[in-house]
Amino acid sequence: MENNLDQIHQQALNELEGAESIREIEDISIRYLGRKGVLTRFLRNISHLPADQRPMAGKKANELKKILDQAFRQASEKHQTQDAAGEQGIDVSLPGRCVTCGAMHPISLINEQICGIFSGLGFDIAEGREVESDYYNFEALNFPKDHPARDMQDTFFISDDTVLRTHTSPQQIRTMEKQAPPVRIILPGKVYRCDSDLTHTPMFHQVEGLLVDENISFGDLKGILTTFVHQMFDEQTSLRFRPSFFPFTEPSAEVDILCIMCRGRGCRVCSHTGWLEILGSGMVHPALYENVGYDAERYTGFAFGIGVERIAMLKYGIDDIRRFFENDMRFLAQF
């Protein structure tokens, strides 16, 4: 009986010696220790032995089972480290399984950047409707009916008294009607003008701003807009304020920055003037205070309007505004 077990032991070790792969070791292991394995069968047959031999045989067989199990495991581990050392591994240069992010629209990106700058300066964000009454879009903003100032904004009409807003300024009036000073808001949103060429699309985006409080001066307007330009472009960007006209501000100013393409030497982008017009601004016209019931003696303020497409074109070097609304994936994927 014992001989038999010794035989099994020796034979197993011999076979293990000859094994050349983990696979073979596993096969040997199954042959001896598996459900139908040699040792398993031996244990099952113990009942056929004489009763006095059974305990010893069972003990010895179980011991052998442990020993072999250990031996197989060690051999297997040894092979594993050897295999790893000899194996080539994978071609890590093959592309990974694709995970691609989509792109935000460049207008959204610039819009967020503009809003972020003004939020940081303490302005709240307000939004308004896009189909507006003539009153809020024009009259309350001091554009009388039948006044040439209305020609400054080519308007889409829904009816005689309803328009697609030509600027986000109507929300200035709506906000002031609801809120007493101080008012510090910016108004991002879509606006519409019937105009279409290389630099105009019938829909575009604006961020307007309004600040009304006691003792607000034109110097403050210059301060806030200078900070904006420096954050949006860079600290070195020079800017100039020049007189202009908007019905809802007085004094009014256009803000030009030194051309970021040619640094003022003159190029195609700046029409060889060295300057780029980037926003309109001015001190709030007293007529607006009257329309919303503010005390024009006590409060002063300023307003400004930024064209988001204009800034995006400059920042990204885009030369045709219509690109923004063609939604060509080859364009959008770049942002």
């Binding site: 607000i216 110097g219 403050d220 210059k222 304020f241 020049r242 007189p243 007085e250």
Partner: peptide, 30 residues
């Protein structure tokens, strides 16, 4: 204000010194 605009224009917008308004510490949440 019409006269103030003339004064500003003739004095030169770029001769008006840059100042900063008093602003709240933080804006309202969006």
């Amino acid at each position: 204000e019409d006269l103030m605009e003339e004064v500003a224009r003739l004095a030169g917008y770029n001769n008006i010194p840059i100042t900063f308004p008093a602003m709240p510490a933080e804006a309202r949440p969006p």
